[in-house]
Simulated assay, not measured.
Amino acid sequence: MNVGLFGVVISATRQEGRGSAMKSPAELTVAFIGLGKMGVAMAANIRRAGYSLAVWNRSADKAAPLIALGARLAKTPAAAAADADILISSLADDDAVKAVVSEPDGVLAGLRPGAVHIGTSTISPTLSDELERMHAAAGRCYIAGPVVGRVPAAEAAQLLTFVAGDAERIGASRSVIASYAPMIFVVGERASQASIAKLIANFLGASALDLIGQSLAWAEKSDLPSALVQQMLSSFFANPATREYVTKISERDFDAVGFTASGGLKDVKLMIAAAQDVNLRLSSAEALRSKLEASIARGWQDKDWSCLTDIDRR
């Protein structure tokens, strides 16, 4: 990704939505649904920013660090949503999101009229638009806000997010969003636009992993010095996170997991399906799918998704 270009856009978007619609932490009640590693880190930053926070997770023990920060543990998604002006969800996939939203004790059962639900998960564009329609029909508002970044970035409140939905509601929610993702890109009014932007970002990331692996395999088979190729790749991929992966893939460090192979396969399938919706075939993504499936067949489903590069190298 072009960091310089992102910097320009970030500066512009940070100036939007700072009018009277913005509220202080004392004026807003927030709920957070889904407490995986990313969710816990994001929710902790919301709480540290001073917001009243209710949380829910199917495994309640994961809420312990947030309760220690003063958050309230709710018994159901509906109970978490009941007092919330803004509810944020961070869940694994389409099925998990749809279930938590639509179950009898789910988000829509508890969310107040006029309240906002911000979905930070990587889900299909089709479901994003469906969620937008479901919330609108119930008199609620859905904003798609998938985040980009690994757990260390979430812990440091340095995530990037693509958001799409009602512009006024995005502006009113901006202070909460900025507490976990200060780099905010408003990409449109349709929820699916944010989901597509996130899938494109992940496609760029996944493609970079594949390029690094193939370049190293070519160099190794041609007896080029590994140090030379690492230097070439590090210079070419200037993004700090990408530079980390150059070393990670070169050293086959797949056990320090930032994102699992099974999670990567899910996202790549979403990329392929979203592109097919606009009559585009992502041949590179199809190759990634095959390599991730081969990785999982070898029992690497819980290794870092960069293990897909070892399919070529082996």
Rank of each mutant, 00 (worst) to 15 (best):
1 M>Y: 12
1 M>E: 10
3 V>I: 14
4 G>C: 10
7 G>M: 06
8 V>I: 12
10 I>E: 15
11 S>D: 14
14 R>F: 05
15 Q>A: 10
15 Q>W: 15
23 K>W: 06
28 L>P: 12
28 L>T: 12
30 V>R: 07
30 V>H: 10
31 A>D: 08
33 I>Q: 03
34 G>A: 08
34 G>M: 14
36 G>F: 14
39 G>Q: 12
39 G>P: 11
39 G>R: 14
40 V>T: 15
42 M>C: 14
51 Y>D: 01
53 L>Y: 04
54 A>N: 09
56 W>F: 15
57 N>Y: 09
57 N>V: 15
67 I>H: 10
67 I>K: 14
68 A>R: 12
69 L>E: 13
72 R>L: 10
74 A>D: 03
75 K>L: 14
75 K>T: 11
75 K>R: 15
77 P>Q: 03
82 A>C: 03
84 A>V: 04
85 D>W: 00
86 I>V: 10
88 I>W: 03
91 L>G: 00
93 D>E: 09
96 A>W: 11
96 A>T: 02
105 D>A: 13
105 D>H: 06
106 G>Y: 04
106 G>A: 03
107 V>N: 01
109 A>I: 08
110 G>H: 01
112 R>F: 02
113 P>G: 04
114 G>N: 07
114 G>T: 03
115 A>D: 00
116 V>E: 01
117 H>S: 02
117 H>E: 01
121 S>M: 03
121 S>K: 00
122 T>I: 05
122 T>S: 13
126 T>F: 00
126 T>R: 07
129 D>Y: 03
130 E>F: 01
133 R>P: 01
136 A>C: 10
143 I>G: 01
143 I>V: 15
147 V>C: 02
149 G>Q: 07
149 G>A: 08
154 A>I: 00
155 E>P: 04
160 L>V: 05
162 F>D: 01
168 E>K: 14
168 E>R: 11
171 G>N: 13
176 V>K: 05
176 V>G: 11
182 P>K: 08
184 I>P: 04
187 V>L: 14
188 G>F: 05
192 S>G: 06
193 Q>N: 07
195 S>C: 11
199 L>I: 01
201 A>D: 10
205 G>Q: 07
207 S>I: 00
207 S>N: 12
208 A>M: 13
209 L>R: 07
212 I>T: 09
212 I>Y: 02
213 G>E: 03
214 Q>T: 05
214 Q>W: 09
223 D>H: 15
224 L>P: 02
227 A>P: 00
229 V>R: 05
231 Q>I: 02
232 M>V: 06
234 S>H: 11
234 S>Y: 05
236 F>H: 08
238 A>Q: 12
240 P>D: 00
242 T>W: 07
247 T>P: 00
250 S>H: 03
252 R>Y: 09
252 R>G: 02
256 A>F: 13
262 S>Q: 15
262 S>T: 13
264 G>I: 09
265 L>M: 09
267 D>W: 06
268 V>E: 07
268 V>W: 06
268 V>H: 07
270 L>I: 00
270 L>Q: 13
270 L>M: 11
271 M>Q: 13
276 Q>P: 01
278 V>F: 04
279 N>E: 15
282 L>K: 02
289 R>H: 13
291 K>N: 15
293 E>G: 10
294 A>D: 08
295 S>K: 06
300 W>V: 05
302 D>W: 11
307 C>M: 08
308 L>Q: 12
311 I>W: 04
311 I>E: 12
312 D>L: 14
313 R>D: 10
